[in-house]
Nucleic acid binder design. Structure first.
Length: 127
DNA sequence: GTTGTGACATCGC
DNA sequence: CGCGATGCCACAA
């Protein structure tokens, strides 16, 4: 199983990802892109490359996530559970946490989207 | 050495 | 809002 674009320090990066996922409270979900943006690009990695690969790095990190990590709370930007065996189980776990799914099996990120501290920029003034 | 793939995001119509 | 196409890196066979 390819690590899919492992950063210079995959161990460190994965740890960063897991640490963030740990911070996701039950009943809320975070997206791969959101998590990727919360982690600074490792040295030697172009910002553009990181922008394109960050989310996937997060994905690969989740592929190796320990059981302690609530990987179930990590979904794609569409608020949908990624294709993968056990998705039904994941959905069930989220429902147990109070996360509601649309008829299409998607989560309303407007409601259940995790509000990370650093990902919550100050609201711009509408001049 | 080449080919294929891999838990995604974003832009355009 | 939904669908289609594109971008980018590293590892494995």
């Amino acid at each position: 199983m390819p690590s899919f674009t492992s950063p210079p320090d995959p161990i460190i990066f994965n740890h960063q990802v897991w640490e963030i996922v740990y911070q996701v409270p039950a009943g809320q979900v975070a997206t791969y892109g959101q998590i990727a943006r919360m982690i600074p690009a490792p040295e030697g990695v172009q910002a553009k490359a990181y922008a394109a690969l960050g989310p996937r790095w997060v994905g690969s990190a989740m592929a190796k996530c320990p059981e302690d990590v609530p990987w179930q709370r990590v979904v794609n930007s569409k608020g949908e559970i990624s294709l993968r065996p056990g998705a039904e189980h994941q959905r069930r776990l989220l429902e147990e946490e109070g996360v509601l799914f649309d008829e299409r099996g998607r989560i309303n990120l407007k409601i259940f989207g995790w509000k990370s501290s650093i990902d919550e920029p100050e609201q711009p003034h509408l001049l």
